[in-house]
Amino acid sequence: MGFKLLSKLLVYLTASIMAIASPLAFSVDSSGEYPTVSEIPVGEVRLYQIADGVWSHIATQSFDGAVYPSNGLIVRDGDELLLIDTAWGAKNTAALLAEIEKQIGLPVTRAVSTHFHDDRVGGVDVLRAAGVATYASPSTRRLAEVEGNEIPTHSLEGLSSSGDAVRFGPVELFYPGAAHSTDNLIVYVPSASVLYGGCAIYELSRTSAGNVADADLAEWPTSIERIQQHYPEAQFVIPGHGLPGGLDLLKHTTNVVKAHTNRSVVE
């Protein structure tokens, strides 16, 4: 069995187990497998329904001669939608809004960016022009300005110390501490036991640490421990890039980060 097929099978099995364990909360999309990078042309966006009122959005972007996937989250909030992270750029984010209108038909009224990198804030200006209120932590807003990236308009308070959590509509926002970046936030959907790890969490097929220019490698494993301790009931975990899975993604990420750190020390 090929690795790609095995990865998709694991996603399907995880979703099936969740649907059985929580039949009222989960209505997993039966329309197909989780979209992969090879299936999404740059400039297009796919939506994948995880649970009743919960979707991931998947886009792709060219970077350094390669094409990478990027995940975000959409959560229903009454007759409105909360968006977590842009679709990595203005063109993708405009396509995301169009796809949401086509498939869901509810307005996106608020959006949260989970850290300051372009795959999370690139497209904020498109959201703002569409009347979406954009939010991020003060740290993310400051770092985005320093980096020359787009800056969300509103500040999220109460997320300055490791372990801080605040309720934001249908989700809980959690600051686990520094990891992929010093400002990275985690998003949890309690009604569906869905954990969105953003770039602080890796997919299972990833074996290298990737972009760690703004990471705190020493603190990252401790931050992941905080996530595990705060959300032990999480059933569906979405990484910032690639295929979702279960809580095993947290341990896998820790292993990859520690291996990278150990290699760096040896070198």
Rank of each mutant, 00 (worst) to 15 (best):
V212H: 07
S27F: 08
L156S: 02
A200S: 07
N255R: 11
G105E: 09
Q103N: 14
G78C: 05
E233A: 12
A130D: 09
P170I: 08
Y175T: 00
F26M: 15
N255M: 08
R110A: 14
S27V: 14
H180L: 04
Y202T: 15
A218S: 13
Y68M: 09
R206I: 15
A51N: 09
A95W: 09
A130H: 15
A259W: 09
V121P: 04
I84C: 03
P221H: 07
V171F: 02
D77Y: 07
Y135R: 00
P23E: 09
G65I: 07
G240A: 05
G78I: 07
H57F: 02
A209S: 08
E44T: 11
S56H: 14
E219C: 04
K251Q: 14
T254R: 11
V11H: 14
L47V: 12
E80H: 09
E80N: 09
L83F: 04
E147N: 15
W220I: 02
D52I: 08
A165N: 13
V28E: 08
A178K: 11
H115S: 00
R120C: 04
I201P: 02
D29T: 08
E219S: 11
L249R: 01
L249M: 13
S208M: 12
R110T: 11
D119P: 00
E203G: 07
V171C: 02
I151Q: 09
S139C: 04
D85S: 00
V124H: 06
I201N: 04
S137Q: 08
A51Y: 08
S56F: 15
D125Q: 08
V266Y: 13
L106N: 08
A25K: 14
H57R: 03
E157G: 13
V171P: 02
P138A: 07
K102I: 12
G65M: 08
S56A: 15
V75A: 06
G131N: 11
V187Y: 03
L247I: 11
S155H: 12
K4T: 11
S139E: 12
A111H: 06
Y175L: 01
Q235D: 13
V11I: 13
F116I: 03
P190K: 14
R167S: 11
T14R: 05
P239I: 03
I20V: 15
Q229S: 12
S31W: 10
S223C: 03
K251V: 11
A21C: 15
E80I: 07
N149L: 13
A133R: 12
T86W: 00
E145G: 13
S22R: 12
Y12S: 09
L204K: 14
L83N: 00
G210M: 04
H241M: 01
S208C: 06
G2A: 06
V75W: 01
S62M: 07
T134D: 02
V112P: 05
L127D: 04
I17W: 08
E150I: 04
L6N: 14
N71G: 03
A98H: 12
I20F: 08
G65V: 07
T222N: 13
K4C: 07
V265T: 13
P152Q: 00
A19S: 14
G122R: 06
S70W: 00
G2F: 15
A144V: 09
I40H: 12
I74P: 01
E39N: 15
Q229C: 02
F236E: 08
M18R: 06
P35A: 15
D214P: 06
L247H: 13
I84A: 03
Y231P: 01
L217D: 01
